[in-house]
Design a protein around this nucleic acid. Structure first.
Lengths: 238, 238
DNA sequence: TTGTGAATGTAAGCATCGATTACACGGATT
DNA sequence: AATCCGTGTAATCGATGCTTACATTCACAA
């Protein structure tokens, strides 16, 4: 797995090759956008074998570049993983907000359409759906070990935005008298813990043989259980 | 950091050294109980720098043994980590059950002493306390990646016992009319997700600067929130 | 008691990895 | 056009997981 298709005599002191007819791109010395390509390669590696399967050398290999090149862009493997995690978190937030925007009104259980508690449910469901559809991406952004813990208190901006959104939605729900408890902070933490825990249990392998159907169905069920638990007038169902 | 205090000429064809007066144990060729010592060393390494900080060579070093020796007992690093995870899980279950046995009656919120729902709460609290007190141990047993996923469906026996305990307790609570929902499976999964999620969020660094007091207090608070949510007659508090 | 085989350790070596250093290239600024 | 500096290459280092060949010693049987 060492040298596959790279004849070691490509370096010519003069520059005689002029991109003659069929020469398939003379491989420019500078890559163009290596940093981006490295992050993408690393993300792909994460998707194939988890975060531990990411090696700087393999990323360089896939980018068609020498093993030392990545260190021009990332001072260490950890720095690369940091960038990878931030990119994944960016995509996560973008997709969550997109999912919320496109389906704001389909909250099957709660009473008026588009009410705060229903949106809270939708937020949790979008979170869970994304996490279960992108388990490896979710793994690197959930385990905070890949984030720089000196910068931004160890919590990325995109993550803080999502938490804010959840907090605001809960505040609205409380203002409309939908919540039983007045301690919004605790409700928010409990909700996060529930959703986060379910997602991680899936990823960590606590439900060995589940189809996506089981997972999605149970996700909705426990979400409803929780929402009913924090809502006022919790009876009505059964 | 290579050769520290081991003169390379210790092997004598004959055996002239007879354990004369001050020879501090002639370092027997066979270790005695290397397997156990390796697991302990690995556990210690996990406690120092997390699971990734465990290396077979370092464990061998701490056991005072050559770098290849561990492979007589574990065919691979993964096998060592597997044994480590099972040992940690064993201790986890033992301590949970001990904690439950010693304090069965102090359930502050629920009505009759030693009722099922109260015991369910105690179980969750013991779980959370242990996880927050032994974060690295909890990490290797929660992330199922260190368990052999061919054997026992990827779930260790000790873990299954704990789940059973939770399930039985919930069934008792339902039989006594303490639960609002009849779907015990979902209640159980939701409870597990909540507790698991909170523990992991702590470990994964989602609550950057918390004292143990904050963590324990919030743990109890969200536990109570959940219990009230699944209990019948949920009002009464505020 | 003695011999022998299996268990368990050592020594040496391979490939891979992260990381560093010296050097080569070439685009951008002047 | 000359130069500078960002970016890539080549070579190398130490550490790691793992394998192979050899050494030692324990346990059991004759």
């Amino acid at each position: 797995m060492r040298s596959s298709a790279k004849p070691p005599s490509v370096k010519l002191p003069a520059k005689p090759l002029r991109r003659t007819a069929r020469a398939p791109a003379p491989k420019p010395y500078h890559h163009g956008d290596l940093r981006r390509v490295l992050i993408d390669a690393a993300l792909q590696l994460v998707g194939e074998g988890g975060p531990d399967a990411v090696s700087v050398r393999e990323a360089a290999r896939r980018a068609g570049v020498s093993p030392g090149a990545p260190f021009r862009h990332f001072p260490s493997r950890d720095a690369l993983m940091n960038a990878v995690a931030e990119e994944a978190q960016r995509r996560f937030r973008a997709e969550i907000e997109a999912a919320l925007a496109e389906a704001p009104a389909n909250n099957p259980a709660n009473n008026p359409p588009n009410n705060p508690l229903g949106r809270f449910r939708s937020l949790g469901l979008a979170y869970l759906r994304w996490a279960m559809k992108n388990p490896t991406h979710f793994e690197i952004i959930s385990s905070r070990r890949f984030f720089d813990h000196d910068k931004a208190a160890g919590v990325s901006q995109d993550n803080a935005e999502l938490i804010d959104l959840a907090e605001r939605t809960l505040a609205e729900a409380f203002a409309q008298g939908q919540l039983r408890s007045a301690d919004l902070k605790q409700v928010q933490i409990a909700g996060r813990a529930l959703v986060y825990g379910f997602a991680r249990m899936n990823i960590d392998g606590h439900f060995p043989r589940w189809g996506v159907a089981d997972a999605e169905g149970t996700a909705e069920a426990i979400l409803d259980l929780f929402i009913e638990g924090i809502a006022k007038v919790p009876g009505r169902s059964a």
